[in-house]
Design a protein around this nucleic acid. Sequence first.
DNA 1: CATGCTTCTGTGAGCGTTCACAGTAGAGAA
DNA 2: TTCTCTACTGTGAACGCTCACAGAAGCATG
Lengths: 343, 343
Amino acid sequence: MTMSQSGGRRRPPTIHDVAREAGVSRGTVSRVLNGGHYVSPAAQEAVNAAIRRTGYVVNRHARSLITGRSDSIGFLLTEPQERFFEDPNFNVLLRGCTQALAAHDIPLLLMLAGTDDERRRITRYITAGHVDGVLLVSSHSGDPVAEQLRDAGVPLVMCGKPIGVGSKISYVAADDRDGARDMVRHLVSLGRRRVGMVTGPLDTPGGVERLAGYREVLTESGIELDERLVTSGDYSRASGEAGAELLLERAPDMDAVFVASDLMAQGVLSALQRAGRSVPGDVAVGGFDDSSAAVAASPELTTIRQPYDRISSEMVRVLLAQIGGEDPAAVILPTELVKRRST
Amino acid sequence: MTMSQSGGRRRPPTIHDVAREAGVSRGTVSRVLNGGHYVSPAAQEAVNAAIRRTGYVVNRHARSLITGRSDSIGFLLTEPQERFFEDPNFNVLLRGCTQALAAHDIPLLLMLAGTDDERRRITRYITAGHVDGVLLVSSHSGDPVAEQLRDAGVPLVMCGKPIGVGSKISYVAADDRDGARDMVRHLVSLGRRRVGMVTGPLDTPGGVERLAGYREVLTESGIELDERLVTSGDYSRASGEAGAELLLERAPDMDAVFVASDLMAQGVLSALQRAGRSVPGDVAVGGFDDSSAAVAASPELTTIRQPYDRISSEMVRVLLAQIGGEDPAAVILPTELVKRRST
DNA sequence: CATGCTTCTGTGAGCGTTCACAGTAGAGAA
DNA sequence: TTCTCTACTGTGAACGCTCACAGAAGCATG
């Protein structure tokens, strides 16, 4: 019972051991392992039995050395990390990607590039071929890392539309503009006419698109645009709070507000409450994301659901396809209006 | 300008190329790389220059194949994932571990074991030697994975004290009991005498310890324990809400409540507000964690800060030491009372 | 002049795979 | 019988690195 002391890992069985055990050669075992054809049912069976008996697991390093693939994927975050780690959506995305990859038996390497130094180190690591591809989260504008990786020939998929247009980079995103349109149409259909907006950062495509959707619907509804009703935040709770205060000051008659993220909407709710406005009585509030922040808020937020579970699985699908040689692709997924108590 | 087409990564330089470039042998390059001694300053310099010129990066697979080390660490979560990913502390922990490892140039593999199937697959992967060690988050009782890994000789550090006592497993934890004592002492010092508690799950050490601290301080303060003032939750927001409702029903004269997590405390605040109790006027509320939920709550929560940044760096330190051959170790870190507006 | 010691350097072997190629056996056709 | 074709199997080489070992200097000591 003391056969394996602490730190005393026994040398694991190799493909050689399996071959001997099954009475075949290394080549045959390798063929069975890699689903190759041209292997007899008898050998197939013998090898599988031997694998089970010996508890063999392939040595990925040896395999990678010869195939040149690492059979692993990097998940790279180049945003200021506080903001993203605060965002419940990020978690959903990370979890979804991990699970989608696990279904292919591919490990996910988590990489956080906060500083320039870290970014350089990680870029170097990636371009050295230590991962087969990268899932990139970086909505922040002017981030050169995406193009750098693409130019190095690294398969790459971004979450959200990249800023640098025209560049052949795969991405998966929710339909921001359409989502915004749905929400604003909903607010207008409730009879609200003085509809404000707290946008996201306007140097990101998401921020711009949601604002565009807002403007389109108001115009289509024959409601005059009023710039005093628009201010922008940075997706953080605090910036929502500040935004709402500003809007109330500039347009006290505001009767609805579309907020570009649930987290900011939480801040908006606080500010409205402090100003003595009831929600949704005086002011209807619509969020965006349908993150856990939406149900944590009180009243619970009407919001636009971004299908993060599908986004993550699509990112993985597109990335694996690209690694398999296919061309970069863009995927835009539909959003959904989720009605709750804040409107 | 079309030298690197999409997918066309050039073969990276090998140690051989560097050796030729520097006019030395592979052995010497390897010695420089691995900080070995017995290499002349001249050779040292020549090799470094050659590395810079060629842009050489070591092929980790080839290295791992011979050293037997993978130079990577697994971060394994065997909890129901929803709960943990909802918890802001988990993010801080994950981020901290990633960064602490990055400082050693070690990649972190994220592994999520929700189902039994996934657990088996991952255990197999780990014991096959694909990672050098594991950072394990699994406060949930009766989880066999820790002992399984230990028995397989895999270096292992847990976050939080493991349930199976006596087992030689490293862990890093905050001082739950002491933190609870601080909080309850604080509440008592405010003159509160009917102090309730919503505990965490009592099949976890953290849950038990915080309850123990609560009882100790009340007893020491000469306040009679009243079981109607204690109920337990599962750290989720919803369970805090339910817990507070129960306590109010059983003990309407409650004038303070110690809640074993900030997330649950958010729920408690909602329930109190709905019941028309003012915080901290009628009821003082103390949380635990000092997560981002504490400042998002209104009023902002007085809470016990768990030093998650230090926990993560200690976990990495202990794990690397253990990989280096040292014995398993237990580290208990002090907590800190953070006073805000809820008390 | 041989001997030993220290400091440095080159070389061959081997880590566990996969891949290309050569080979074998058996079936069917000439 | 001999030949060809198909279905399968074994073998050597290679992937890029580290490690152990064998040397080669340079210098002091016997």
